Simulated scan of single mutants.
Amino acid sequence: MTNKMLTKQSSLTTASNGANAFAVTPARAGVLAFALALQAAAFAADAPVAAPSPATAASAPAAKWNVNQPPGEKKIANIDVRTGTWMSVDVSPDGQQIVFDLLGDLYVMPVGGGEAKALTHSIAWEMQPRFSPDGKQIAFVSDAGGGDNIWVMNADGTNARAISTEDFRLLNNPVWHPSGKYIAARKHFTGTRSLGSGEIWLYHLDGGKGQQLNEKPNWQKDLGEPALSPDGKYLYYSQDSTPGRQFEYNKNSTGEIFRIYRQDLTDGTNEPFVTGPGGAIRPTPSPDGKYLAFIRRLRDASGSRTTLFLKDLKTGREFPAWTGMERDLQESWSVHGVYPASRGCPIPSRLWHGRRASSGASIRSSPAPRRSPST
């Protein structure tokens, strides 16, 4: 992994006549509109606003500010790394490649190991890559246009383009709809505090202003980490479910901080889906739709451990799959997620993840228990 600009820091009521009332909120109206659009195989998207791509922004003329053309003197440093921290990982649908973020760039490498190839290489910060359902494109977050937006590029790193153009309510954590035509992402909202909260919005691959899928709980309790079921019926997300309306740092991690919710995208209704002591974060459906992987904090005689769990979606049974995870961020600020993204591998019995560690991290393949052969 070669030259890198030092500029980059190295550390996203209408009530029916009768007893049952159905509240039509803006988010629910958005879900209903999306469901109708899917049924009609069309989506009304506004014409996208062109933005400089991460690969070509350096050659574009600067208007007021160009992320890839900062003023001042520049220096180049050689960086050779073999480990990283807080890395989001995804696996190609054919199970042959891994894409990950490191130091603000995106890389791809064979599942079996080898040299990582840079897909992006600029001053702009790119993160949280996700393969499209057909494996031909990668969605990711980039600030090349001046703020964090959702971008898409070919799987080989060419033809990068922005599909969202937010300049204030910035975006992160993109996930593909199974149709390959839409991308859901978390939009960040702030009020009187910078910590803020989140909502999940849906964007057409051709661009546009997006469609709101749910509503933030308030201006300080976070919501994020979206995931879509393989059949496109459900949206999963994590939400700070502690009492009160204000964000607090001194939350009790042995109790319940975050819950995972499941939202029906046909009518907009949602339900608490994974709850209980130790919380539940980073929902990740298995490719076959039989399991939901998630992160939970366990406490036993050895102390508090962040643990990978699986939930059998047929029986509802929840069980630990691996205890080798490093600490999550449930007590802290979680705008870009409470834990890095992972992916259930198409290869049986594997789950890939970026393992956060205090002394460095690497990309790992964890064997799933035999009782869950498809995760």
Rank of each mutant, 00 (worst) to 15 (best):
residue 11 S to L: 06
residue 15 A to Y: 10
residue 19 A to T: 10
residue 21 A to R: 14
residue 25 T to F: 03
residue 46 D to Y: 00
residue 49 V to D: 03
residue 50 A to W: 12
residue 69 Q to N: 15
residue 71 P to S: 11
residue 76 I to M: 14
residue 81 V to C: 00
residue 84 G to V: 05
residue 97 Q to D: 15
residue 98 I to P: 15
residue 108 V to H: 01
residue 118 A to H: 00
residue 118 A to G: 05
residue 129 P to N: 13
residue 134 D to Y: 00
residue 138 I to R: 10
residue 139 A to Q: 11
residue 146 G to K: 03
residue 169 R to D: 12
residue 182 Y to R: 01
residue 191 G to W: 06
residue 193 R to C: 00
residue 198 G to Y: 02
residue 200 I to E: 04
residue 205 L to C: 01
residue 208 G to F: 06
residue 215 E to C: 03
residue 218 N to M: 07
residue 221 K to M: 15
residue 227 A to F: 08
residue 233 K to D: 06
residue 240 D to M: 06
residue 248 E to C: 01
residue 254 T to H: 05
residue 259 R to D: 14
residue 267 D to W: 06
residue 269 T to S: 15
residue 272 P to E: 02
residue 274 V to S: 05
residue 279 G to D: 09
residue 284 T to R: 03
residue 285 P to L: 07
residue 304 S to F: 07
residue 307 T to Q: 07
residue 310 L to S: 03
residue 311 K to N: 08
residue 313 L to K: 10
residue 319 F to D: 00
residue 328 D to T: 12
residue 329 L to Q: 14
residue 329 L to F: 15
residue 334 S to W: 00
residue 335 V to P: 00
residue 338 V to G: 01
residue 338 V to W: 02
residue 346 P to Q: 05
residue 349 S to D: 09
residue 349 S to K: 15
residue 350 R to T: 12
residue 353 H to N: 10
residue 356 R to H: 14
residue 363 I to E: 10
residue 364 R to G: 09
